[in-house]
Design a protein around this nucleic acid. Sequence first.
DNA 1: TATTCTACATACCAACCAGTCTGTGCGCAA
DNA 2: TTGCGCACAGACTGGTTGGTATGTAGAATA
Lengths: 208, 208
Amino acid sequence: MDSAKNVTRLERNPDQTRTRILEAAFMEIYRNGFQGMRLDVVLAATDLTKGALYHHFHNKRALGYAVVDEVIIPTVKSLWLQPLKNAADPLATLITVIEQMPDNKPFPEMIQYGCPLNNLAQEMSPLDEGFRQRLDYAFCVWHDGTQDALERAKLKGSIRAEVNCDEAATFIMAALEGCIGLAKNAQSVERLHVCNRGLIQFINSLKP
Amino acid sequence: MDSAKNVTRLERNPDQTRTRILEAAFMEIYRNGFQGMRLDVVLAATDLTKGALYHHFHNKRALGYAVVDEVIIPTVKSLWLQPLKNAADPLATLITVIEQMPDNKPFPEMIQYGCPLNNLAQEMSPLDEGFRQRLDYAFCVWHDGTQDALERAKLKGSIRAEVNCDEAATFIMAALEGCIGLAKNAQSVERLHVCNRGLIQFINSLKP
DNA sequence: TATTCTACATACCAACCAGTCTGTGCGCAA
DNA sequence: TTGCGCACAGACTGGTTGGTATGTAGAATA
């Protein structure tokens, strides 16, 4: 009613509340892993309480699943697939995306905490089939986008005709995750660049 | 005194007791991560009790450190460095080691649970500096052994003179960890083979 | 306006779990 | 033989944590 109340008080906005919980949960999972995530910490970060959390999510695991579905997978799409989609020069764009990965805005903590997708996959896929399937889907999406770019590069003559784009895309994903993992353990941007150089060398070896 | 008692009772053997705890702890960490490891479970697997554990290790973290120092690092050495050491054909041996990795005896669970070294590194290196340094040392040992093999291959003319063996070794480690990680998430041996094929393709691209 | 439902807040609980404390049998030294 | 310390056993605890039960202000509905 009175304007002062409207300012200090948050309006009812369940969708936004849910999103805030999701984003805080994502950060906690990113930093501490799913098992290491504490719901109290997530709630403290959002200034919400148990009531809000359990109104929007059935339990901790459901929250984790939602983070994969609604945060991680969309991020993979916007960060990886979007630039490759409709790129004039798919191969050059692929290399650019790899090189600029550590400087990406959404993840300045990439060196410190690694890749959110791979972190969660390594931690949870052996322990929980629900996580595994969702993360496997994320990798599939990523793979298919990469393979697509390689196929288009092949059509343009940028890479050799006999290259198996399916297998190449799989290896590129794997190698990139490995590079990020090594750099994270060494806590060294330089290590990531060294590692990525090897990956780019591989990609270049696909050229005619 | 009476023989029956001597049979049922374990003789005192503190070294063996310590080793049993270490090995059980390793398996628990391998399967559930360090944060997921429960000391009760470790003790149940060894038929020991809290008294034994806290007699040999100061706390849970010290136990984790000891697992890295006394189980993981020696395993890296015996599994990776030993075959490369004094190999007549370093490059061929390297490829063989990579190909036979999933069939190794110590880790039939490689596909299910991944690489113990990398698992722990991804989980703990951002959270605990003690873990990070020990795991970084493990990667260094691994790297140096690999680089050494590449240098010897270069001397024999198996790979090109302009190849940077330091960087190549780094990338080979990273890519291999990435391959294992992807295969683990897909729970597919086939995926590991596909992925390794890409890595071997990279190694072959180093040849003259 | 009365009622119902949504979207939370808050107090509470039971289970879990790392770590502690005390006890004890055995080997060994003196 | 006695004393002492090592190598454990086993009971206990205090803090943590996921989850629940209850309450309630405001919006929607009738």
